[in-house]
Amino acid sequence: MTRPATAMTSRVEAGTDLILERVFRAPRPLVFAAFSTPEQLSQWWGPRGWELPVCTVDFRPGGRWHYCMKCVDETQGEFYGMESWGLGIYQDIEAPARIVYTDYFSDAEGQINAELPPTLSTLTFEEVEGGTKVTNRGSYATAAALQTVMDMGMLHGITQTWDRLAEYLEAQTP
Rank of each mutant, 00 (worst) to 15 (best):
T2A: 14
T2H: 10
R3G: 11
R3M: 03
R3A: 15
A5W: 00
A7I: 12
A7V: 09
T9K: 03
A14V: 04
A14N: 12
A14W: 04
G15M: 03
G15V: 07
T16D: 09
D17P: 04
L18P: 14
L18R: 08
L18M: 11
I19M: 08
L20S: 02
V23A: 00
R25V: 01
A26C: 01
P27S: 04
V31M: 00
F32Y: 03
A33Q: 04
F35V: 01
S36M: 04
S36C: 13
T37W: 04
T37E: 01
Q40L: 11
L41W: 13
Q43P: 04
G46A: 08
G46W: 06
P47D: 06
R48Y: 09
W50D: 13
E51R: 15
V54C: 03
C55V: 14
C55W: 14
P61S: 05
P61F: 09
P61Y: 14
P61V: 07
G63P: 09
H66F: 11
Y67L: 08
K70F: 08
V72R: 10
T75A: 11
T75C: 08
Q76K: 14
E78H: 06
F79N: 09
G81E: 11
G81V: 13
L87G: 06
G88K: 06
Q91S: 11
E94W: 02
E94C: 03
P96I: 02
P96K: 01
A97C: 02
I99H: 09
V100F: 05
V100W: 01
Y101Q: 05
Y101C: 10
T102K: 06
D103A: 05
D103C: 03
S106T: 14
E109Q: 07
G110R: 04
N113Y: 12
A114V: 10
E115C: 05
E115T: 15
P118N: 06
T119I: 14
L120F: 09
S121C: 10
F125D: 00
E126C: 02
E127C: 03
E127A: 13
G131E: 00
V134A: 00
R137V: 15
Y140R: 11
T142K: 07
A143S: 13
A143T: 12
A143P: 07
A145M: 05
L146G: 04
L146A: 13
L146F: 03
Q147V: 06
Q147M: 03
V149C: 06
V149F: 15
M150A: 13
M150C: 05
D151C: 12
D151I: 05
M152D: 11
L155N: 14
H156Q: 12
I158Y: 14
T159Y: 06
Q160A: 08
W162P: 00
R164F: 05
Y168N: 07
L169Q: 02
E170H: 15
A171K: 12
Q172L: 01
P174I: 02
